[in-house]
């Protein structure tokens, strides 16, 4: 923990700094520049000051209304998938085998959805959930439940949530599994000696050991679901109506679809600020856990 203080370390960080600055700062400056201007096309820009930002924060305007409702949908989406993926991921991790060939087999199968290009994830579910040629859509309709994600907003949401659960639960499960694997056997033996119930083992041994990885899992899942674009875009295109139009979809529509650069830029900045704020909270929590770690670990060393 007592790392030496040495500002020459900056030299080692410099290459990373250069590339990330090139990739992040220059574009962000463009965005800020756009956000205070308006255009009539033909690359003619004029000063608009904070106009777009005022509109953005005003729910009664067109822009403000669209952003607010897509923000709401995004938050609802993130909430739903976290509520499903975290408990399911923990349950799957607890059920995973600990030894033998089954471990490798399970890991490989579980990791597969994570390595599928995101638009192919969309394609897979687009096909799988269709009523005419998809197994899922066909089976659900056969059961007498009307299901069509193209016309029914609820069906569209169910499809997108199922797709996200399919795509990302393995990430949560693999993280938790890594946390569980780090628990020495003596803990389970001691718990048996102490007469602990299965629940107590989970509550007092497994959950505390998974806490750190769970925070990483929640952080990654929240952020990635908050900027989800490709998968729902392929499946529903944001519809029916605007029912699955999330922030990123709205933004790309504005920027590349309508070339409303000013609005899009202002929205980008607001979007990024929200992300930064959430990220900061998680980062603070995680660094605090890092401080606690060394003492906690010395005991478990084996």
């Amino acid at each position: 923990m007592d790392r030496p203080y040495d500002n020459r370390a900056w030299l080692l960080v410099l290459p990373v700094l250069a590339i990330v600055a090139f990739s992040a700062v220059i574009p962000l400056m463009t965005v800020v520049n756009y956000s205070v201007q308006d255009t009539f096309g033909n690359n003619q820009f004029f000063w608009n000051g904070a106009g777009w930002f005022k509109e953005l924060l005003d729910p009664s305007s067109d822009l403000g209304g669209r952003v607010l409702s897509s923000l709401g949908r995004n938050l609802a989406f993130s909430g739903i998938i976290l509520a499903i993926e975290v408990p399911l991921g923990i349950a799957v991790a607890l059920a995973m085998p600990r030894e033998g060939w089954k471990v490798a087999a399970t890991l490989v199968l579980m990791a597969m959805p994570l390595l599928v290009p995101w638009n192919v994830v969309g394609t897979i579910w687009q096909v799988f959930a269709r009523g005419d040629i998809g197994l899922l859509g066909y089976a659900v309709n056969k059961l007498g439940i009307p299901y069509n994600y193209v016309s029914d907003p609820i069906a569209a949401w169910v499809t997108i949530v199922a797709m996200d659960v399919w795509h990302w639960t393995s990430l949560v499960a693999l993280l938790c599994y890594a946390g569980l694997k780090s628990i020495p056997d003596a803990y389970y033996q001691a718990a048996r000696i102490d007469g602990a119930s299965r629940w107590a083992v989970f509550r007092f041994i497994q959950l505390p050991k998974m806490r750190r990885v769970l925070i990483i899992a929640v952080l990654l899942r929240f952020m990635d679901s908050f900027m989800i674009y490709t998968e729902p875009f392929v499946v529903t295109g944001g519809g029916p109506g605007n029912s699955t139009t999330f922030l990123s979809i709205e933004l790309v529509k504005l920027a590349l679809g309508q070339f409303d650069l000013g609005k899009a830029a202002a929205m980008s900045i607001a979007y990024n600020l929200v992300i930064l704020a959430v990220c900061w909270v998680f980062y603070t929590v995680m660094t605090n856990l890092d401080v606690e770690r060394p003492q906690a670990e010395t005991g478990a060393a084996s």
Binding site: P184, A186, Y187, Q189, A190, R192, I193, D194, G195, A196, S197, A200, F204, I205, P208, A296, G299, A300, A301, S302
Partner: peptide, 30 residues
């Protein structure tokens, strides 16, 4: 659990999230 045996291991096993008191009370409460 049904043998009524206590065992202490080579490396300390404590329940991190509990207080010292709760740790000691744990086998009794169970």
């Amino acid at each position: 659990e049904r043998r009524n045996i206590a065992q202490v291991f080579q490396f300390p096993v404590v329940y991190d999230t509990m207080t010292v008191y709760e740790n000691l009370a744990f086998p009794l409460r169970n």
